Lab assay of single mutants.
Amino acid sequence: NKFNKELQWATWEIFNLPNLNEEQVKAFIDSLRDDPSQSANLLAEAKKLNDAQA
């Protein structure tokens, strides 16, 4: 299933962003679980936040 692979990839990527704190990671993962179809958008937002906090 396409969404499942995207969800797994986005989850792994978010867990490995070095500049997000635990609460931010949890919030993004919760959002992914709530709406897996938004995984690409949520990953992009997480990466933006990660870069901003570098």
Rank of each mutant, 00 (worst) to 15 (best):
K2F: 09
L49F: 05
K48H: 07
S31Q: 14
N16G: 11
D34A: 13
F15A: 15
I14P: 02
F3H: 14
L43N: 01
D30V: 07
F15N: 14
D34T: 12
L49W: 04
K48S: 12
K2V: 07
Q38M: 12
A27N: 12
N41F: 11
F15S: 15
K48F: 07
K5E: 15
L20K: 00
N1Y: 00
L42K: 05
N41I: 10
T11D: 05
A54T: 11
K26N: 13
D30P: 00
P36A: 04
D34K: 09
N16H: 13
A10T: 08
K47T: 06
S39G: 05
N21G: 06
L20W: 01
E23Q: 13
L7E: 07
W12F: 13
F15I: 13
N19A: 08
L17N: 01
D51G: 06
D35K: 12
L17R: 00
E22S: 11
N50F: 01
E6N: 05
Q38T: 03
P36T: 05
N4Q: 15
L43T: 05
N41V: 08
N1M: 01
A44D: 10
N1H: 03
K48T: 09
S31N: 11
I14M: 03
N4A: 08
E23Y: 09
L43R: 03
W9I: 13
D35R: 12
W12N: 15
E23T: 11
L49K: 06
N41R: 11
E6P: 02
L49S: 03
N1S: 04
D34V: 11
I29W: 04
L49Y: 04
N41Y: 08
Q53H: 05
P18W: 05
F28K: 00
Q38S: 07
D51P: 01
L7Q: 04
E6Q: 06
D51Y: 10
I29Q: 04
L7I: 11
E22N: 11
S31A: 15
S37F: 10
A40I: 13
T11Y: 14
S31H: 11
V25M: 06
A54S: 12
N4T: 05
L42I: 15
E13W: 10
S37A: 09
E6G: 03
A46G: 01
I14D: 03
K2T: 05
A52Q: 12
N21Q: 08
S31T: 08
E45S: 08
T11S: 09
A44K: 11
N4E: 15
T11W: 07
N1G: 12
Q8F: 12
A40E: 10
N4S: 08
D30H: 11
Q8M: 12
N21V: 06
K47D: 01
D35G: 04
W9N: 14
